[in-house]
C-alpha cells in the first residue's frame, strides 16, 4: 500500500510507525502540512497516488482543516474529519459520549464568568475547569475554593484566547491515583495501560507512571461504545475507575502510543499497521465499487 503521513513533527510515535511501514515494504510519503496549500479543487500535497492518508498532525487546528480538505478531494483519511472534529473539542467529545449512553463525567459549559461560577458552585469543590481545546494536561485547573474559582475565571476571561471564554466545568472524579489509556482500532483494543501519579493529573505527558492493564468485559464494552460515539478510527480512549465501574472522560484522535508500546507487552506499531492495511484495502474496495 501507499501511505501518506500527514505531520508537522516526527515524534517517536511517528518514527515507530514509519519504521514498521517501511519494514513491511509499503510506500510512504511524508507530507509536512506546513509546506502545503489546500484549495477548494485540490492541494499541493502529494496525495494523488496514496491509498490512505494517516493524520498525525501535532497541531489540532491543522488536523481539523487538513483532514476536511483531503476528504473533500476523495482521499481516504484516518482518522476521519468527523472524528477529528468531535475529539478535538472537549465539549463535543462529552456530548458525543453522553448521547451514545457512555458514562462520562458530569459537565457544563458556560460563556461568562458569572455563569461559570454558578456551574462551579453547583458542582461544589473540588471541581475541574478545562480548556475545550488542548492536550497533555495543559491549562487544566482543579478548583478547591470559590476564591480560586474567581481568580482563574478572571484570568481566563482577561488573558485568554476566545476559546478560553468557553468555560468547560466538570465534576471532579475521585479516581484511585490512576486512569486508564486504551489504544483502540475501530473499538478493538490494541493495548491498555494505567497512568499513575500522586498529582491529580496522571497524563503520561505529565510524567505519570505507566503499567500494563488488562481490560475486563465492562471496559471492553465501553471502549467499543466510546469509539462508535466519535465515529471510530485509531483512538486513545481514556477511562477512570469509579469504584464499581468506569467513566470515559475523553477520546483522543491523534493518539500517541510510544508510552503504550513500552508499558504493554504488545507490538503497538505492528498492530497499528495491521489495521491500516485493512483500512487501505477496504478504502480500495469502496473506490472500485464506484468506478467499475
Amino acid at each position: 500500500m501507499h501511505v501518506g503521513i500527514l505531520y508537522s513533527r516526527i515524534r517517536r510515535d511517528e518514527k515507530l510507525l514509519l519504521s514498521e511501514l517501511r519494514d513491511r515494504g509499503h510506500d510512504v510519503t511524508k507530507i509536512d502540512v506546513r509546506e502545503h496549500r489546500f484549495g477548494l479543487d485540490g492541494t499541493t500535497a502529494p496525495v494523488e497516488d496514496v491509498d490512505l492518508v494517516v493524520d498525525r498532525c501535532l497541531a489540532t487546528s491543522r488536523s481539523l482543516y487538513a483532514t476536511r480538505f483531503l476528504e473533500s478531494y476523495g482521499v481516504p483519511v484516518v482518522n476521519s474529519a468527523e472524528t477529528a472534529e468531535i475529539c478535538a473539542d472537549k465539549a463535543k467529545n462529552s456530548l458525543a459520549l453522553a448521547e451514545a449512553g457512555v458514562p462520562t463525567p458530569q459537565t457544563e459549559v458556560a460563556f461568562t464568568k458569572e455563569a461559570a461560577l454558578e456551574a462551579i458552585e453547583s458542582f461544589g469543590y473540588p471541581c475541574v475547569l478545562k480548556p475545550v481545546v488542548g492536550s497533555w494536561g495543559r491549562l487544566m485547573a482543579k478548583i478547591d475554593s470559590r476564591n480560586a474559582a474567581e481568580a482563574i475565571l478572571e484570568h481566563k476571561a482577561t488573558l485568554g484566547h476566545y476559546e478560553h471564554k468557553v468555560f468547560y466545568v466538570q465534576e471532579f472524579v475521585e479516581k484511585p491515583g490512576r486512569d486508564i489509556r486504551v489504544l483502540a482500532a475501530d473499538g478493538e483494543p490494541v493495548a491498555a495501560m494505567t497512568r499513575s501519579s500522586d498529582h491529580w493529573l496522571t497524563n503520561a505527558a505529565k510524567g505519570g507512571e505507566t503499567d500494563a492493564f488488562e481490560l475486563d468485559d465492562e471496559a471492553l464494552e465501553l471502549v467499543a461504545a466510546a469509539s462508535d460515539a466519535v465515529g471510530g478510527g485509531l483512538l486513545g480512549v481514556d477511562l477512570m475507575e469509579t469504584g464499581e465501574s468506569y467513566t470515559v472522560h475523553e477520546v483522543n484522535h491523534t493518539v500517541e502510543f510510544k508510552a503504550l508500546s513500552e508499558a504493554a507487552d504488545v507490538d503497538v506499531p505492528a498492530a497499528v499497521v495491521d489495521w491500516l492495511e485493512a483500512r487501505a484495502a477496504s478504502a480500495g474496495d469502496e473506490v472500485a465499487e464506484v468506478t467499475p
Binding site: 516526527i10 497541531a59 480548556p131 488542548g134 492536550s135 497533555w136 491523534t254
Partner: peptide, 23 residues
C-alpha cells in the same frame, strides 16, 4: 532543534510549543 533535511543534515531551532498541540 528540528531536522529540516537529512542529506546533508540541516538543523534549525524548533518551533515553540503551541496551545493546540497534542493528541
Amino acid at each position: 532543534l528540528e531536522v529540516i533535511d537529512v542529506n546533508p543534515p540541516v538543523l534549525e531551532r524548533a518551533p515553540e510549543l503551541e496551545e493546540d498541540w497534542g493528541e
